[in-house]
């Protein structure tokens, strides 16, 4: 049976269609979830897409974490549901305390969109098991508030526990501490990533096909996971 991957639409979500397309290209069935509906409709995994949820006039993700759907997602994530937060989704996961730290304004204060090389460092997560350790991938980054920060103890722990999923290589686009581009929770089912793998799934529209690995990873993970 095809895996069903939920893609949440908050008011102000922008890359929800792209995330759904990536899920489809990876071979799964995208299921659109609505911010106001706490029902997860039995999905096997969830993607929180990029965008500006609720306008993000307040701290990014600060309102979205209180959306009805997030209550269900937080509970399910604690029970092992694979959750990928991309950009705004990463911000929401931090606000929801599923991941440590926070995303702040880019150090240079500009929105920045460029094709970015990342090094995948943790391949044991639900979303990165299709990669090789140390593999370099090319994926677009585009954000205004993508500067990852946490206190030194948290950063040390993330590194010690192998929870830094990806780092920026060849230039840090936003000033993130220790070049961190993506992290995971202790269980490895929740991943937050600032760059946009869903924009690197078609040769015609992306700089590479490297993003597809995140979505095929979760399918592999679901097959291997106990039902």
């Amino acid at each position: 049976m095809t895996a069903r991957v939920g893609v949440v639409t908050f008011p102000g979500s922008l890359d929800d269609g792209d995330a759904a397309r990536a899920v489809r290209i990876a071979g799964a069935e995208p299921v659109r979830l609505w911010h106001g509906d706490p029902d997860l409709h039995g999905v096997d995994a969830v993607v929180l897409p990029g965008g500006f949820s609720y306008g993000d006039y307040l701290r990014c993700g600060a309102i979205a974490r209180f959306a009805p759907v997030m209550g269900s997602i937080v509970d399910a994530a604690r029970g092992g549901l694979p959750v990928l937060g991309i950009c705004n989704g990463f911000q929401i996961l931090c606000e929801a305390h599923l991941l440590p730290g926070a995303l702040t304004r880019n150090q240079h204060l500009h929105f920045r969109n460029r094709d970015q090389v990342l090094r995948i460092e943790a391949v044991g997560t639900a979303w990165t098991n299709a990669f090789q350790p140390g593999q370099e991938v090319l994926i677009p980054v585009k954000n205004g508030e993508g500067c990852y920060v946490a206190d030194p103890a948290t950063l040390d722990r993330l590194e010690a526990e192998g929870r830094v999923v990806a780092r920026y290589v060849g230039g840090n686009p936003n000033g993130s501490q220790r070049d961190i581009a993506a992290i995971t929770n202790e269980a490895g089912n929740v991943v937050g990533i600032m760059p946009h793998p869903e924009h690197a799934v078609e040769a015609l529209t992306g700089p590479s096909l490297d993003g597809l690995g995140f979505f095929t990873s979760v399918l592999k993970h679901l097959v291997g996971a106990p039902a």
């Binding site: 922008l14 890359d15 269609g17 792209d18 397309r21 990029g50 500009h110 929105f111 920045r112 969109n113 460029r114 677009p140 585009k142 946009h196 869903e198 924009h199 078609e202 015609l204 529209t205 992306g206």
Partner: peptide, 24 residues
């Protein structure tokens, strides 16, 4: 131009600095 999102919607085939923008 890198202050502008050129990827969103996933249909951008060509964008600046190309001569034209091309959208699927």
């Amino acid at each position: 131009t890198e202050q502008y999102d050129r990827y969103v919607l996933g249909n951008t085939v060509l964008a600046q600095p190309e001569d034209s923008g091309v959208i699927r």
